[in-house]
């Protein structure tokens, strides 16, 4: 039996269909979760996809982080459930307190939509074990509020504990501090990144198939644990 990965849809979510497709490409079963759900249907992992949940009202991800479905997601993540937040999903996980730091408006004020190269900094997390540390992957970036910020104390912890998972291989186009594109929780099971691996899983529709590795990573881990 293949592992079951929940994909959450909030009002305003855009990338749930591609995230579910990526789960299936990697060999998993995608389970749709709705923002009002309070039961995670026993899923083995959760993807919080990108978009503009609740219209980005208040702050990007702020309302979604306090939606009914996120209560059980936060509880389960604290018990070790693997969770991946992509773009708006990353913003939601930061707002929910599962990941450190915050995402603010791009330094140049422009929405950025293009392919970008990322350097893998940590290939030991639940979502990156099929990637190679130091290698580069090419995935799309499409966000207006993708500039990662954190205070010096938080950065010291992130760098010291290997919690920076992805860095922009070039200078961060959004002004992200220390070129950080993605981070993880202390236990490496919750990962968030601004660029979109789920859009880079098939040469027909994406710039590469590099993004598939995130999904095969978690499925390999779940299968090994089963």
């Amino acid at each position: 039996m293949s592992a079951r990965v929940g994909v959450i849809t909030f009002p305003g979510t855009l990338d749930d269909v591609d995230a579910a497709r990526a789960v299936r490409y990697a060999g998993g079963e995608a389970v749709s979760l709705w923002h009002r759900d309070t039961d995670l249907q026993g899923v083995d992992a959760v993807v919080v996809p990108g978009g503009f949940s609740y219209g980005d009202y208040l702050r990007a991800g702020a309302i979604a982080a306090r939606s009914p479905v996120m209560g059980p997601v936060v509880d389960a993540a604290q018990r070790g459930l693997p969770v991946l937040g992509i773009c708006n999903g990353f913003q939601i996980l930061c707002e929910a307190g599962l990941l450190p730091g915050a995402l603010v408006r791009n330094a140049g004020l422009r929405f950025i939509c293009r392919e970008i190269r990322l350097r893998v900094e940590n290939a030991t997390t639940a979502w990156t074990s099929d990637l190679t540390a130091g290698a580069e992957i090419t995935v799309p970036l499409k966000s207006g509020e993708g500039r990662f910020v954190a205070d010096d104390e938080t950065f010291a912890r992130l760098e010291g504990e290997g919690q920076v998972v992805f860095r922009y291989a070039e200078t961060a186009p959004n002004g992200a501090l220390r070129d950080v594109a993605g981070v993880c929780s202390a236990d490496g099971r919750v990962v968030g990144l601004m660029p979109h691996p789920e859009h880079a899983i098939d040469a027909l529709t994406g710039p590469s198939t590099d993004g598939l590795g995130l999904f095969t990573s978690v499925l390999a881990r779940l299968t090994a644990a089963a």
């Binding site: 306090r66 707002e95 730091g101 915050a102």
Partner: peptide, 8 residues
């Protein structure tokens, strides 16, 4: 906890 994000 809601109106402002203390991180930023």
């Amino acid at each position: 906890t809601l109106l402002a994000n203390p991180v930023m």
